[in-house]
Design a protein around this nucleic acid. Sequence first.
DNA 1: CTGCCGCCTGTTGACCTTTG
DNA 2: CAAAGGTCAACAGGCGGCAG
Length: 632
Amino acid sequence: MANASPLSRTNPHFFQPLLPGFDSHLNIPVKFFSDHIKGKHEGKTVNLRSDASERTWKVKMEGNRLTKGWKEFVKAHDLRVSDFVVFRHEGEMLFNVTALGPSCCEIQYAQPRRHEEDEESNETEISLRSEKEVEENVKTESDQSSPNLNCFSRSVTASNLSRDTVGFPINFAKQNGLNKERQEIFLMNGEGKTWESELKRWGDCRLSIVRGWTSFCTANKLEVGDSCTFRLLQKTAETPVFQLCSSTKSERKIQSAEGCIDDKTGGSRFVKLTPTLNSLHVGKQHLPVSFTRENRLINPGKIVLVDKNRAEWLMELKVDKSTGLMYIISGNGWKKFCAANEISAGESLILELIRGGVTPLLKFISKLDQPPFEAEAQAHKRARVQKLSQETEPKLDMREKTAEDRVPPRASNKSSGNQENLQHTQPCSVSNQLAKVKQSVVDALTSIRRFRAELDTTEQKLEISLQEINKLGMICIAIFTFNFGSTRFSKNFGTERTEDNGNKTTTSSKPGATLAKDPLASEKQSTLPLPTKDGLPIDINLSFNIYTAVRKLRTALAREGPDGVMAYQIFMNSTLQQISRQIPRTKEELLQINGLVQAKVSKYGDRLLETIETTVNEYYGTKKKDPIIIHQ
DNA sequence: CTGCCGCCTGTTGACCTTTG
DNA sequence: CAAAGGTCAACAGGCGGCAG
């Protein structure tokens, strides 16, 4: 899977996808271990560094396993299942680690916390990655005391698209000094492309992005219902830049691909929920403590509910801070979900918890008709429920209302076998009621067994799919490591290769012929040519070296610069990618790179050109300016 | 007609209280 | 103590008025 030096002549690399259980230890690939560690550095402590922090983590190596200390590194970098980590050996058991998210893009971290701000957790210098940070920032937007907001989320709606206007969180603006009546801003997508826009203030308490929103959404295929999160990149600049750092749609695609692995928590996967009039009205549903504890469902976040038609409903799993209880909330999503499953107040439904991905899923298993007396008792349980129903139908007594409420759904529910009986049995004897309860339970059990069999089959299929996805993920990671567009890559994949000595050899003419294999399995794939804008191929190995070199330069510049200057504020990743693709050799050529304005070229141009020149010379082993474009 | 503005109202979600 | 209900601030979006 991973291999020594496939990507660079100087630094051996390997990468690992993070699978469940990754946080306790990480296996170094056997081949890498035997090539670079075994016999030389065995049993030593490994030093891990990342671009996200200046700190070095010491991690114990037992055999080919990273053990003691790895957990801290994981925690500090907020690594999660389905992320990837690329280890680059810098020598003397020092590894530079690059973390990539499930989207195969590098995880962006927020500004490092200062020690004085977070003295309690001095083991963690890095603040959380953007996705989590987003959640926290959104959560604390109303909290005036929370410092350093640099992300906000917005949903794409038909209304804001049609009006080309979207609301802007006022607290976010206040925290970041966006107080002007009108302020030009840039909306930037993940690839670094920008759209001109404007932030406008109305009165004291309202801000909106007033133009550019629709074109941004259209260009980035953001549709109604998607939720997108923006990060403020250049806070101090004349024109603030808000970069799209995540969107719900892509996340959900990942969830649906990954979210159906069986859980390994050992708790009961099934939960019975009984929505009440109020829970439907306020749109939230508490989960039984026993269920959340057994299944370790203790962290707030997203949760996907799958209804009987297999439609997914993305909701929030929250924790009630005063009681510690977990509940699902989604505006009227819970009400609609119940409606979609033909569940009305007082009726119960059984859901099965499916875990394994980033987001847990609760799948509708069956409806559990309650005996009327129980539903009735529940309906009478609270005086406030009565108040609520009186608001809607003030003339009805609660008892009458319950009956009224319950009859129509049953009358319309053709699938309910005992609907007629239920309608007539309210005054029935206890034995009749018990018989009905028993029948309901038997029906529910039958449903559960049927769904379980179906789930087993689906699970097997999904596991096969997951393996395929993992394979693809590895391919993507290799592509990303080169930092080139995957579509261009795939076009040329397998058409031409270079041996380690840099000589080009044609080994396969079938596009994709080697795609099925692990892309990192062979060192011989290290110099796949990619076309430039002109359609001409470039030497990917050189470009990768340049990318690595300018990235190192950026880190160095960030460290040299004044406190608080982030690497991305010097050069953005997209700028580095463009530099590595176009390999500018003069300041004029630098100015043609997006993101390199005159001021930056004046400030950093010399060092950039020097770095590029050195890398090119090292690569070709010569001082002359070799042509970068290699014609096929 | 289009874009901008501002008022108003419904929705959402966090936090707290009450009930059984 | 678990679960449900209540309250309220913040926010989103509908709608109508106004200007160009």
